[in-house]
């Protein structure tokens, strides 16, 4: 081969190699551009999805906060409603001491008139006797006035938010007060309401540390439900049904048990696991918020206790509240107990 031929072959080889390199580089850059575009597209899609998710999250957060606000409003309404139910019971409770105050005032007035006559006649001994009667009457007026005051205080406590202060309280006394309030409350609503109330209070129960107004609310709520169950049953069956609600307290070293049993309509099997859920109610719309038992559950839990029940449909329901006897108990007030 001549030098010229070799030179031409070199040129051809170089040009072919050069074209190959150029094509290779072009191909690479093109491939890079396409793959970057595709990645960017995926990324943009992800960004859009992320934005949508963020928007939905914000929407859900707003809805949640609105729901919370509504829930707290409902809880407040529930509390006010229960206070309304108690009004009749409270009025009845206040009426008794007021009657005493009125009667003793009248008697004292008459005694003072007689005393004035005796003083005019210079009958000092009789006057002194009458004066001591008046003093006795005034003591009684003072006693019943204080009783009415304590009832009003209790009502105010019920409407106020629990401060979470533990106090030593007598469970039997709390049950007794709650029975009377719940009974009169129910009586004012249902005129023909009648129930036999049996109380079996253990006498060895010491005062235990609780938040009295909270535990009072729990007992009152369960009692109201018990009364309501007997009313429902009496509407359904014949007249030989005798409504009965039994309240029993028991004490052992671990704490106090309160049993509230009614022979009402019972709880159907299919709703047994729902009754402590918030907003669950079997009452017709407008009669109950469905928060009563849910709040009871939270209150008892916050006291470190337990609430449970047994029921047989159309026969009975028995609630058991257990409250531990702990002096060092720290009560965490649940959010929904306003």
């Amino acid at each position: 081969m001549t030098n010229r031929q070799i030179e031409s072959i070199d040129v051809i080889v170089f040009i072919v190699a050069g074209i190959l390199v150029i094509l290779l580089m072009f191909g690479f850059i093109l491939y890079f551009l396409i793959s970057y575009k595709s990645k960017k597209r995926d990324y943009n899609l992800l960004e859009i999805q992320k934005k949508e998710l963020d928007d939905q999250k914000k929407l859900l957060e707003n809805t949640l906060s609105e729901l919370r606000a509504t829930q707290s409003q409902l809880i407040h309404s529930e509390k006010m409603a229960s206070l309304g139910q108690l009004t009749a019971g409270i009025a009845h409770e206040i009426q008794n001491p007021l009657n005493f105050v009125n009667n003793f005032s009248d008697v004292s007035k008459e005694l003072l008139t007689e005393m004035r006559e005796d003083i005019k006649k210079n009958n000092i001994e009789d006057a002194l006797e009458l004066a001591s009667d008046v003093v006795n009457n005034l003591d009684k007026i003072y006693f019943h006035g204080k009783k009415a005051e304590s009832i009003v205080k209790g009502m105010l406590q019920h409407s106020r938010a629990a401060k979470g202060l533990l106090e030593k309280a007598d469970i039997n006394l709390l049950c007794d007060e709650s029975i009377r309030l719940a009974y009169h409350g129910m009586k004012s609503k249902f005129m023909d309401f009648n129930v036999e109330i049996t109380t079996i209070f253990a006498q060895n129960i010491p005062k235990i540390y609780i938040i009295p107004q909270d535990i009072g609310r729990v007992i009152l709520n369960i009692l109201s439900n018990a009364f309501y169950a007997t009313i429902q049953k009496s509407k359904k069956i014949s007249s030989d049904y005798k409504p009965n609600v039994t309240i029993k307290t028991l004490y052992d070293s671990s704490g106090v048990n309160v049993y509230i049993r009614d022979n009402g309509c019972g709880i159907p099997q299919e709703i047994k696991d729902k009754i402590f859920q918030p907003f669950f109610t079997t009452k017709i719309s407008g009669q109950g918020t469905g928060l009563g038992l849910s709040i009871c559950y939270d209150i008892i839990n916050s006291h470190g206790g337990r609430i449970s029940f047994e029921s047989k449909e159309r026969e009975f329901t028995e609630f058991n509240i257990f409250l531990p006897n702990k002096s060092n108990l720290v009560v965490k007030i649940p959010n929904n107990v306003v």
């Binding site: 030098n3 070799i6 030179e7 070199d10 040129v11 170089f14 040009i15 190699a17 050069g18 390199v21 150029i22 290779l24 580089m25 072009f26 690479f28 850059i29």
Partner: peptide, 24 residues
């Protein structure tokens, strides 16, 4: 990338075909 990949080829050829490299 484009230029220096080609540069490898050019100077590679230059070294390989040193006596009479194609001027193009």
């Amino acid at each position: 990338l484009f230029y220096y990949a080609f540069n490898i080829l050019v100077w590679g050829f230059h070294n390989w075909d040193f006596i009479n490299p194609p001027l193009i």
